[in-house]
Nucleic acid binder design. Structure first.
Length: 104
DNA sequence: AGACTGACATACC
DNA sequence: CGGTATGCCAGTC
């Protein structure tokens, strides 16, 4: 069904680029697609997440270093993140500046 | 078909 | 810490 827009395509493409063991923020993704003010729109697109496991929205965190809204029922994925050493107990990112993946 | 409102996982003041 | 500003989407009228 691919009912996605060009904007979402960019968001998913950027999110998919996140390597394992790394995380990114909505702000970074928004900036990566050329709309640094669209962090919310990024979240909106990821929230739909038609590419569920393809687009690791669980690997995208808030700009504050918190894990983000995927905790809302998807917290099982958080375990995987912890396994990758990205998250810390309590749903916090381990040194965001150290794990943050920046699009270039 | 066109316009408005609500919702969303942020950012800024 | 709280309210306002911003961007995109979806549903509704």
């Amino acid at each position: 069904m691919k009912k996605i827009t060009e904007f979402e395509k960019l968001v998913y493409a950027a999110t998919k680029k996140i390597p394992r063991g790394r995380v990114s923020t909505y702000q970074e993704i928004a900036r990566a697609i050329g709309k640094p003010k669209s962090a919310r729109a990024v979240g909106n697109a990821l929230g739909k997440n038609p590419f569920a496991p393809k687009v690791p929205c669980h690997r995208v965190v808030k700009s504050t270093g918190e894990v983000g809204g995927f905790l809302n029922g998807t917290f099982e994925k958080m375990k995987l993140l912890k396994k990758e050493g990205v998250l810390n107990l309590g749903g916090r990112v381990v040194s965001l500046d150290h794990k943050l993946y920046v699009f270039r």
